[in-house]
């Protein structure tokens, strides 16, 4: 059996005065294995940051345990801090130090020679080097993110804890960032990463969907998609929002949501594709309807709406 990079068990955390004490984490458990990219996927307010801060030993849970690289987060925080690299959601490097100075500072804090560290982060540092005399506060979003990653990696951590590293980042930079993460994985670093983007979820080895402080499901992206319990019909053509209205008015759809240029329909029990086609014939536009495979986003929406209906 593989050992754990981050194993959390029944974590609970309530912030006082948070809308009358709603739980930020409400019994969260998962086991991220050594050597894998484990994604925590969910919207703002789901509890992702709280979880990341507990994993980084910055806050304590009200109850439950977190074991990071074999150490207990409550008792062994100093040892954990030496072997993890943490990148908070908010840019937290020294804005009035240069790129070079920030890296030197973090190398010193972690007791490594800057030269050794830089060798290790060479792939990323190469892109920063032409700007090494620039103040961190004057860097663009993409460069700040890469510098933060350099500083988190300088001491060769076993586990990277990345709290929404790509929020507000454009699609091209996001893809580059994930290419870097895949390379980190190749050299044996485990990654615990949170994101609201479903396309990034697909690049993780395993993911946990989180919503309102609860884990909805944990598995590989492939297994989650394969386990989608319902049919999906995909309709396209005509104007999206008119199409959605027609579908919802038809009484045939359990749900109908836009997915780019088409829309995904979860049909009501027994509704057939022919029924949908017939119904749409009488609406405006030329629609085509076909059965389609579920995406991770369909799965998240389905699990999340189930959770909402129960509570």
């Amino acid at each position: 059996m593989k050992s754990s990079a981050a194993k959390v068990c029944n974590l609970r955390k309530v912030y006082a005065g948070n809308g009358g004490g709603t739980a930020a984490l409400d019994g969260v458990s998962f086991d991220a294995e050594e050597g894998e990219i484990f994604g925590l996927i969910g919207p703002d307010g789901a509890g992702k940051t709280t979880l990341m801060r507990i994993a980084a030993t910055l806050i304590l849970p009200d109850s439950g345990t977190a074991e990071i690289c074999g150490f207990d987060a409550a008792r062994d925080c100093r040892r954990i801090r030496q072997i993890i690299g943490y990148m908070p959601g908010k840019f937290s490097l020294y804005q009035d130090l240069t790129i070079e100075e920030n890296i030197a500072f973090f190398a010193k804090v972690f007791g490594v020679r800057k030269e050794d560290g830089i060798e290790y982060i060479e792939e990323i540092y190469r892109r920063l080097e032409p700007f090494k005399k620039r103040l961190a506060g004057r860097l663009s979003g993409g460069m700040k993110q890469k510098l933060a990653l350099c500083c988190a990696l300088i001491h060769r951590p076993k586990l990277l804890v990345l709290d929404e590293p790509t929020t507000g980042v454009d699609p091209v930079s996001r893809q580059e960032f994930w290419d870097i993460l895949q390379n980190m994985k190749k050299i044996g670093i485990s990654v615990l990463v949170s994101t609201p983007y479903m396309d990034e979820a697909a690049r993780c080895d395993r993911i946990a969907f989180i919503s309102s402080g609860k884990i909805l499901k944990t598995d590989s992206p492939q297994n989650i998609v394969a386990a989608f319990p319902k049919k999906i019909f995909r309709a396209s053509g005509g104007k999206m929002f008119e199409l959605l209205k027609a579908l919802r008015g038809s009484g045939l759809a359990e749900s109908a949501y836009s997915f780019g240029d088409s829309c995904h329909i979860v049909p009501k029990c027994g509704a057939r594709i022919e029924d949908l086609k017939k119904c749409l014939q009488f609406s405006a536009g030329n629609f085509s309807v076909a059965e389609a495979p579920a995406t991770l986003e369909d799965c998240f929406m389905e699990l999340n709406s189930g959770e909402r209906n129960r509570s």
Binding site: G42, P43, D44, E164, T167, G168, P196, M198, S211, F241, L244, Y257, S258, E297, F300, M301, N304, S305
Partner: peptide, 20 residues
């Protein structure tokens, strides 16, 4: 300006219906 960043997938879609 990036009105839906980090927003739940269902909320994000409903928001676009408001825009429409």
């Amino acid at each position: 300006d990036e009105p839906t960043g980090g927003v739940d997938p269902i909320v994000r879609r409903k928001f676009w219906e408001e825009i429409y």
